[in-house]
Design a protein around this nucleic acid. Structure first.
Length: 571
RNA sequence: GUGCCUGUAGUUUAGCUGGAUAGAAUGGCAGGCUACGAACUUGCAGAUCGGGGGUUCGAAUCCCUCCAGGCACACCA
């Protein structure tokens, strides 16, 4: 695809005497499309050149020689240089690219096959999969897809919370009260009930908490009773999680819990010991991080057992050796900011390569609160993902029943699933990941405006048009001139920006950039659609408009798939 | 107490490596289906960009300070 920014920078660098690459970063999008396709504010050059910005813009606009390029015109308004690209050139290059790549449009090899690990989802076993786990699962999956699209060797990891004192607690509770429950009936619910109950007991009786810690220590040492129970809890939980993963179509290349690293912590402690930085403090063993302005990182508890940080360090060591990764992204809520800062610092002592050290990155995201406050499994006030998805699907099902009763039952079920889940996914990925979310049923289950169903609806409409048009014209036969009027050209420009959008989403690890783009594209197409009849008698015009509809459908589907949203053909 | 994050129309938000008139959506009001799907679209009203200082030709954006909310701060993960 032609790079117009480069063309502009090339011409400019001759008159401005500034490096081309630097100029590219200064080029921006004008406030309004009437001004042009690209703009260069000239304020920043004022000091160096010693002239007023307006004069610079005026002078450059006159001196600029853009013969033989795709630049149609350069005008200066105030201190801005505004560039217009020949509309045909823009349309031609983007349509050509989509025609050639089809569903693979947007792919690139800027990743150079570098290895990116994405750790996401990572639920705690024996606890319900609630809406707090949804964000990591969806953000992680989106990042996984985005990096893959850019030519990275991407590996998705589900780092299950399947270890720690909590299982000491579970074991203690199960030991005490197993006869009161039927675990086969609703395993997670029973385990949650036991968990809530044992926590309450620990609170009022410190000695029970000590029992629990002892259980975990036994589990670590391979005590049969404890290990058998732990395995039972784990298997039952995974079965439950798989239901959700299959609904959301989430996949992992590696599912390894913390437990996997249990026998790998000795080496970590060994390595840290040799650095001389592992010191004793109040009976525990810690790495002091005072010089980094952080509280110490505990590696061994005073009873000798390991802690979360120890296993995370073991995981870093293991992953560095196994994958020699270029990036290792942890999609985990911001409440763990300090934890990751600490272990990334301690990881520098593990003897892993500098590349791996630098590749560690915490992708933190905001917490989900309920209107009544924070969710807590212990308090029992959580919204389960399964419940949310079912509700969403059933609401969509009702709407389909009203709007499209003639569809078959299978079609209705299929569409309701795609749209219901799409709405939930979009809702979670629509805003910046760092912001907190107050969960509200009415917001999630709203299907109008900037929502997943809006994007899906627009796609369905393109499909409907294409069906009516009967055949998609040949690219060679398209008269590009027909796509240069305002509404069509807005769509073209958005399509052109898609590759930049994906790169920017990866650079910022921000899937919402894709979400925004999809809304913009859907909106631009909808405006075009409402203002222009597509299936008209004039074959030249019809073919061009049908073709634009066709490429829009490709890119809408392409972008939605990055987010994990599936497109129905009807709805 | 210390550190980190967030604060933009009634509500949800984009813009945050400083740049043109702060874009949207939702809700409110007024229009548009005998055209290709109205889960749509066109328009109107609605913003002291949390407050106050500062830097700059120029600040929602950078710095300082205060306020409000969230999170974290050693034997949980």
């Amino acid at each position: 695809m032609k790079n117009f920014k480069e063309q502009i920078a090339k011409c400019l660098s001759k008159v401005a005497n500034i490096n081309e690459q630097e100029l590219i970063t200064f080029i921006e999008k004008p406030k309004s499309p009437e001004l042009g396709d690209y703009a260069l504010p000239c304020f920043r050059f004022s000091k160096e050149i010693g002239k007023a910005p307006n004069d610079i813009a005026e002078a450059w606009s006159k001196e600029l020689n853009f013969q033989g390029t795709d630049i149609e015109s350069v005008t200066n308004t105030g201190a801005y240089l505004n560039f217009k690209i020949y509309k045909q050139a823009m349309a031609e290059t983007v349509l050509e690219e989509i025609e050639a790549k089809k569903d693979r449009f947007g792919e690139s090899n800027i990743g150079k096959n570098q290895t990116v690990l994405v750790e996401y989802s990572s639920p705690n076993i024996a606890k319900p999969f609630h809406i707090g786990h949804l964000r990591t699962t969806l953000i992680g999956r989106a990042l996984y897809n985005i990096y893959k699209k850019l030519g990275y060797n991407t590996i998705g990891i589900n780092h299950l919370g399947d270890y720690g004192t909590q299982f000491g607690k579970m074991i203690e509770g199960y030991k005490r009260w197993q006869n009161e429950y039927n675990i086969e009936e609703d395993p997670i619910q029973v385990l949650t009930d036991i968990y809530v109950r044992i926590n309450a007991l620990c609170k009022e009786d410190e000695s029970v908490l000590d029992e629990c810690r002892e259980n975990f220590k036994k589990l670590e040492q391979g005590d049969k009773y404890c290990v058998d129970l732990w395995e039972k809890f784990r298997d039952l939980s995974l079965k439950e999680f798989d239901k959700i993963y299959s609904l959301l179509d989430i996949h992992f290349d590696s599912i390894k819990g913390e437990a996997f690293y249990a026998d790998k912590t000795d080496e970590v402690i060994d390595i840290l010991n040799k650095t001389g930085k592992l010191v004793e403090s109040e009976g525990a063993r810690i790495i002091d991080l005072e010089d980094k302005n952080m509280p110490p990182c505990m590696v061994c508890k005073s009873n000798g057992s390991t802690i979360y940080a120890t296993r995370d360090l073991a995981a870093i060591l293991y992953r560095a050796r196994t994958y020699n990764f270029d990036k290792c992204l942890y999609v985990v809520a911001y409440e763990q900011n300090l934890h990751f800062k600490q272990i990334f610092e301690v990881a520098k002592l593990l003897g892993i390569s500098e590349k791996c050290q630098k590749g560690l990155e915490h992708i933190s995201y905001g917490m989900v609160h309920l209107k009544t406050g924070k969710m807590s499994t212990r308090e029992g006030n959580v919204i389960k993902v399964e419940e949310l998805l079912k509700e969403s699907i059933s609401r969509v099902r009702k709407i389909i029943e009203e709007k499209n009763p003639e569809l078959t039952e299978e079609e209705k079920d299929d569409i309701a699933t795609k749209v219901g889940i799409g709405a939930v996914i979009y809702n979670d990925l629509s805003g910046s990941r760092i912001k907190d979310e107050v969960f509200d049923w009415d917001t999630v289950l709203n299907f109008n405006g900037e929502t997943g169903p809006y994007i899906q609806y627009t796609y369905v409409r393109t499909k409907s048009v294409l069906k009516k048009a009967e055949n998609i014209p040949n690219f060679k036969d398209i008269d590009i001139e027909c796509l240069t009027e305002k509404d069509a050209y807005e769509v073209i420009k958005l399509l052109y920006s898609y590759t930049d959008i994906i790169e920017s989403a990866a650079e910022k690890n921000e899937p919402s950039i894709i979400s925004r783009f999809l809304i913009d594209l859907a909106k631009a197409y909808s405006s075009f659609y409402n203002e222009n009849k597509i299936i008209v008698d004039d074959k030249k015009v019809r073919d061009a408009r049908v073709y634009l509809t066709y490429v829009t459908s490709i890119v809408l589907n392409n972008g939605a798939n990055l987010l994990g949203i599936k497109m129905p053909e009807k709805m």
